[in-house]
């Protein structure tokens, strides 16, 4: 009898050993894959930093583009990017969140909503140049809006709308049904349930989706080039705040613009090596802008989590 017990023990031990080995193999493979991916990324970033870091100076940030590489800067590009991102966020986030909430909470589940769901997901995979062509044909030519910051923001918000919608739906779907049931259970109507209970709980997820979308938009070049944004801009859009009433000025929306990726693209296609350095420096700055945006989102998410809990 004890013999059997010992044999069973051996079997169990062998089983444990096999599982240990499997764990080890998977762990090693995982680390290798991680190193490859991180290595590639680090190489790219390091290369960019080595080329561009030395070029970044206050003058680089406060100068307009120039024919002479040493005098050129990215002032109009970073201002343009910032303003275009503002427009994009102001359009894409309310529209995307609204559409996502409607599809998830209000729309009845039928064939039509299924078709819409599939198509929204498909839209996220449409090449960005298609959006650029749409914007060129519709906003620029049909509506005659010109190559302005507003059009740039519109096309980028179209581009990221599917991302925001899908993220919103996922965030709402992840809310435990108990919360929804108890909110309805106290007699709340749909609006109250959504506004007071679902939206606060879904906010961190929605925010993540919005930032993923904006991070994609900030680096987009193709649709912006397609609508015909200029590559050489030696002036700034009118300031959004004025010293005379009504203090807020929306003229900047109709101003021509350039953005960081276009400035980079333009400089990389010049033959002179000095311009390539400028391009690398612009790349570093663009990376910084994206990181700052993500950092802000992480901070917001942290704050929201805290307020949601209390």
């Amino acid at each position: 009898m004890s013999d059997i017990a010992i044999r069973a023990g051996d079997d169990t031990r062998r089983l444990v050993q096999v599982k240990r080995r499997q764990d080890l193999i998977f762990g090693v493979v995982g680390i290798l894959v991680l190193f490859v991916v991180m290595g590639l990324l680090m190489t790219l970033v390091a290369d960019l930093l080595i080329d561009g870091l030395g070029r970044i100076s206050p003058e680089f940030l406060t100068s307009f583009p120039s024919r002479r590489a040493a005098a050129a800067g990215v002032l109009s590009a970073w201002v343009g990017t910032t303003l275009v991102m503002l427009v994009t966020a102001a359009i894409a986030i309310p529209l995307g969140v609204g559409a996502g909430l409607y599809l998830e909470e209000y729309a009845s589940k039928n064939l039509l909503s299924d078709i819409i769901e599939v198509n929204v997901s498909n839209l996220a995979g449409v090449p960005s140049i298609i959006y650029g062509l749409l914007a060129l044909g519709f906003f620029v030519y049909a509506l005659d809006m010109g190559q302005t910051i507003l059009v740039g923001g519109l096309v980028l918000s179209l581009l990221i709308l599917p991302i925001v919608i899908v993220a919103t739906r996922e965030a709402v779907r992840a809310i435990p049904s108990g919360l929804r049931e108890s909110a309805y259970g106290i007699g709340a109507n749909r609006w109250q349930v959504m506004w007071s209970y679902i939206l606060p709980s879904a906010r961190p997820g929605i925010l993540t989706g919005a930032i993923v979308g904006l991070s994609r938009a900030i680096g987009e070049t193709a649709p912006i080039i397609t609508i015909g944004a200029l590559t050489y801009i030696a002036f700034l859009p009118p300031a959004p705040v004025t010293s005379t009433p009504p203090w807020i000025n929306f003229e900047w929306l109709n101003s021509p613009f350039t953005v960081m990726p276009i400035q980079m693209f333009n400089w990389t296609s010049r033959p002179q090596a000095e311009f390539h350095v400028n391009a690398a420096a612009t790349g570093v700055l663009l990376l910084c802008m994206t990181l700052m945006m993500n950092g802000f989102a992480i901070y917001l998410r942290y704050r929201l989590r805290r307020t949601v809990r209390t």
């Binding site: 435990p176 108990g178 919360l179 108890s182 909110a183 259970g185 809990r309």
Partner: peptide, 10 residues
């Protein structure tokens, strides 16, 4: 109504 799992609002 009170549900099976305690589900206070956050």
């Amino acid at each position: 109504m009170v549900f099976q799992k305690p589900n206070p609002f956050p």
